[in-house]
Design a protein around this nucleic acid. Structure first.
Lengths: 138, 138
DNA sequence: ATCCTACGATGGACTTTGTCTAAGTCAAGT
DNA sequence: ACTTGACTTAGACAAAGTCCATCGTAGGAT
């Protein structure tokens, strides 16, 4: 994710140890951590990092469009670093595991004009619910 | 919503003034209330009803499948009494207004096997994001 | 009609998730 | 190396929701 660090520097971000650590924690595929999980992993690398900084940094990453907020349940928001390829989410109803998925077609085409109530539609978020192989085995 | 009260009684629910009031509130015109909104409207009809009872009753209605939980943002959950007719939601990004909508086609068909990661898929929730006519005018 | 009792209601403490603020710290340009 | 203002910090605060001990009552039993 040094790409990300480069982009952020280019946008005038001051590069601090804390921000670097948060970006590192979010690196990877199918990563969907809560703010608290990001914080506790960040603490492993940089013990004095504060919760507020993690929240601030995540919020900035979301504003910059580098990270997506995902809310699949009523619990904590999760942060998805895979912001550059459009995708939806598949969630296990038992254990909460989240996978990024790429459905076919355009979800907007399923909403006819008569069902748009004069709204300007900007997008659609799809959450597929199911049971993961692990939980199905148990 | 005396249908609902009948069904609940048939399921062995003890009928109390509090439960009746919560059911009545959900039967109103505003069909996507937060727990707090349900509580404050319930208080108008039954001043001594407690928050905990409203939460308990809403939780029971959800468990029984009579009411759906909707989490469109990271604020409070909303409760949707329109549980017997499958539908999705259209949300205004500005003001948070929610409309029930009925898309065409089956959302599950857009998820190819290769994107299912061995999950058993049970359903899909679609949230269309947009701007409502009111907010677009402003 | 009254009594019993298990189910439901109550309010307040508690938890989780997230925001805000005042004061201290430090990255980076000069 | 100095300076400056952006960044970080700890902790108070807030909103949404859960838990628990205790009290009240719906509805069947008598």
């Amino acid at each position: 994710m040094s790409d990300l660090l480069e982009r952020l520097r280019g946008r005038g971000w001051r590069m601090t140890a804390q921000r670097r650590v948060v970006a590192e924690v979010l690196d990877g595929d199918h990563v969907h951590l809560t703010a608290d999980e990001v914080h506790s992993r960040a603490v492993d690398k940089l013990p004095e990092i504060s919760r507020a900084t993690v929240y601030n940094t995540l919020g900035e990453l979301v504003t910059l469009g580098e990270v997506l907020e995902v809310s699949t349940d009523r619990r904590a928001k999760r942060y998805d670093p895979n912001a550059h390829r459009p995708h939806q989410h598949l969630v296990c109803a038992q254990c909460g595991t989240i996978r990024d998925v790429h459905p076919t077609g355009n979800p907007l085409s399923s909403l006819p004009d008569s069902e748009r109530f004069g709204f300007t539609i900007e997008g659609a978020d799809v959450t597929y619910r199911g049971t993961c192989p692990n939980c199905a085995a148990a």
